[in-house]
Amino acid sequence: MSAPILSIRDLRARVGGRDVLDGLSLDVGAGEVHAIMGPNGSGKSTLAYVLAGRPGYEITAGSVTYRGEDLLKLEPEERARAGLFLGFQYPVEIPGVNNVYLLKAALNAARKHQGLPEVDAFEFLAVVREKMKLMQMDEAFLSRGVNEGFSGGEKKRNEILQMLVLEPTLALLDETDSGLDIDALKVVSRGVNTLRAPQRAIVLVTHYQRLLEHIVPDRVHVLARGRIVRSGDRDLALELERRGYDWITGAAA
């Protein structure tokens, strides 16, 4: 395996008085794409939020190492600046905060962290336009409030647009494929694939094997009751599609 970007060891986490992650371990190497599948309520989004640092999640045991550093001691904004990106399962609407402003502020926050000067306004717009074209998004979305009144699919495209502009080292995409029509799925997949690079890693949370036809994963994991209960290659996804989860979760119980 290549040098790990993310290494999770025996992670336990509580939210709302419930132990949701129950000894989860996972390694994601540089250049790799991993898919996490699993039944509803098994803890996939919880894992994504814990990694992104959302308040309200209590880590009761275990460790998370990101590029050799203790991820859990960083604030959410520091994690983002260090190259971690969470594509939300339910992107948040923020009326009154301009979409393009957020993009630019986010990019500049990361650049500042890297000791780079603020992005040139012209260059920035050129880059954003290019990425929007790739995502087949109308430029009118730039001047709207963040996700304000966006359709479900438009919100997901907007998440990928942000990801493409920020070029994260580790992208966690939580059900970015749900709510997308067939064409949009291709568009979004193309967006994700352009990000694949030897120095990056991508973790996709998905319920559908269909996405994995477009973004071919190196590893597929099944998350059930708060831990990874099985891992395999892309064939595991095909098998899950055929057989469901019972044969695995039953065995794990």
Binding site: G53, P76, I94, V97, A109, V146
Partner: peptide
């Protein structure tokens, strides 16, 4: 809080968020 976390998760500092 959800809006705030969304902004933080994009690297925006708290004061600005």
């Amino acid at each position: 809080e959800q809006m705030r976390f969304y902004l933080l998760s994009r690297g925006i500092d708290r004061e600005t968020a």
